[in-house]
Design a protein around this nucleic acid. Structure first.
Lengths: 190, 190
DNA sequence: CTCATTTCTTAATCAAGATTAAGTTTTTTC
DNA sequence: GAAAAAACTTAATCTTGATTAAGAAATGAG
């Protein structure tokens, strides 16, 4: 069940069997059904979530009554609102399952204790956060340098398999335009 | 000279005097004049830069021949292209001083060695990268949820002192619109 | 102090993508 | 397997901010 997490971790650090046991003893596991939430806006986020299997999105509700997606997360990604988690203040985001998913999560209140026992986890998170930050900067670069259509075509060719997993209107939201506009682009046929 | 870095570090981790000495022995120091570059696109980024004092920007040249700013960095911030640094591939970005600045930098090729000697640095960078990532997500959220004018007004009230330090046209670029549009907003008077 | 460069402003025209409003297709649920 | 709900499409109109083109003001260098 937790195997994907250990496999993933081994790409970055090496833990002895005893250490892996400690890690697992600090984690919680949960199945979550499509459309259920891990976090709802207004609440304080109290865990970091690793997706063993599935797909989730993080979004906020706009003034116009629509939903704006800021992040997707699939197998082997962590998802949380670090702003809320870090400072323990109410989140403006919602985290919701797009597919039935299997989650491992690490609660804020025991994280420091775990990190003290397994300092290598500091390194692991340092590396994955570095990559997440780098990806986020690249995303900003794309947003400002490309048109909506270019962003769609780029996303399509970069993550062809991912397109199958999410509804078009969610992809439109993530890319920063309307479902109608996405439909228009697709209508152009090639 | 290096005092700002040690002061900053003490907010996150505690190093003994001997450890601080080790850290300093691994760092390089450099003065950089306004308009000089730390990184030029096409080159591989080989260090992470800490700004002891000053102001820099990271930008890319667009197809239209303009410059698109993706990040600013001032005193007590690290700046680098993590994509290029991590994977040692040519950068698409330029990092340039906006003011005469004092820089401490940590070279890629000795970073791992330093981290082995001072594992607490993994924690330090884990924390600041977590905040950088969180800030980046918030920025994406603002980009998609607010109009150009709203973004400008928000930035203005959030960083009133920073506005003094950069030319308006750079701020416009960072916020994702043209200098002409920024001028229009300001012209509205209040 | 003066010329050159950089930065900022104004205004007219234009375009990418939003909005609105149906209607259609696909998926879910009972 | 029928009805309801969710997802997608099309097209007309509208809006935000881009583009173009001056000119004005501020800053910097010698």
């Amino acid at each position: 069940m937790y195997t994907p997490l250990l496999t993933h971790l081994r790409n970055y650090i090496s833990l002895h069997e005893a250490e892996e046991k400690i890690l697992l003893s600090y984690l919680n596991f949960q199945s979550i059904k499509k459309k259920e939430h891990l976090l709802t806006e207004g609440n304080i986020c109290n865990a970091n979530h690793f997706i063993l299997k599935g797909c989730l999105r993080m979004y906020n509700n706009t003034d116009e009554g629509t939903e704006q997606i800021v992040q997707f997360a699939i197998d082997n990604w962590w998802i949380t609102d670090y702003n809320s988690l870090d400072l323990q203040k109410p989140s403006i985001f919602n985290i919701q399952a797009i597919e039935n998913s299997e989650i491992a999560f690490l609660k804020k209140d025991i994280q420091e204790e775990l990190f003290k026992k397994l300092p290598q986890l500091e390194r692991y998170f340092r590396i994955i956060l570095q990559r997440a930050f780098a990806a986020s900067i690249m995303r900003i670069q794309y947003i400002f340098n490309q048109s909506g259509e270019e962003r769609y075509r780029h996303f399509n060719s970069a993550f062809p398999d991912f397109i199958q997993r999410v509804p078009q209107y969610m992809l439109a939201s993530y890319l920063g335009f309307t479902p109608e506009f996405l439909s228009k682009i697709r209508g152009k046929k090639e």
